[in-house]
């Protein structure tokens, strides 16, 4: 059975009919072809699929697309404006906070949530905030530096 939904993604309203069991992440990747949001696991453990739902970080594999009906979603594709990287994206670039790039979208979105709540986090707070997101490449060191860079840039 298909269910009609309306979801605003990166500021653009999308109407679609989806199977009730469609996860939000699959809606984003397969229906909207926004493949920047990744699937790294099947137990909501890796955080690669993190998006913002009404401004708050959410693992988009833990939510059905129908539950997002009427809500606003921001994905990694919605972070830069007119080709200018968001300060968090810029931070990851400047501080080498990414290697293979697969966990990166989820890290950026989680960091966005953190900085919206705590604009000046210390190392410990950053590490705690990111503990739901696996990175196997960086050892997290440079991700922490990237988030600090972003916090500084955003407070200026």
């Amino acid at each position: 059975m298909k269910v009609p939904i309306t979801i605003t993604v990166n500021g653009k309203k999308h109407q679609a009919e989806v199977e009730a069991r469609t996860l939000l992440v699959h809606f984003l990747r397969e229906h909207l072809r926004l493949t920047g949001t990744h699937v790294g696991c099947d137990t909501s453990g890796c955080g690669a699929c993190t998006v913002l739902l009404n401004g708050k970080a959410l693992k988009s594999c833990t939510m059905l697309a129908v539950q997002a009906d009427g809500h606003e979603v921001t994905t990694i594709e919605g972070m830069a404006t007119n080709g200018t990287l968001h300060p968090i994206q810029e931070g990851f670039h400047q501080k080498h906070g990414l290697q293979c790039g697969f966990c990166t979208p989820g890290m950026v979105m989680t960091a966005a949530d953190l900085l919206s709540k705590n604009p000046n986090p210390d190392d410990h707070q950053i590490r705690e905030a990111l503990e739901g997101n696996f990175c196997r490449c960086t050892g997290y060191h440079n991700i922490v530096e990237s988030v600090k860079y972003a916090a500084n840039a955003m407070s200026e």
């Binding site: 920047g36 699937v39 990694i76 594709e77 830069a80 990287l85 670039h93 990414l98 790039g101």
Partner: peptide
Amino acid sequence: VKRLEDKRFLTGKGKYTDDIV
């Protein structure tokens, strides 16, 4: 030197196998 490959990954435009249709 800052990485030349970063931008596509940071903007969600990396192209991994599962992204290909």
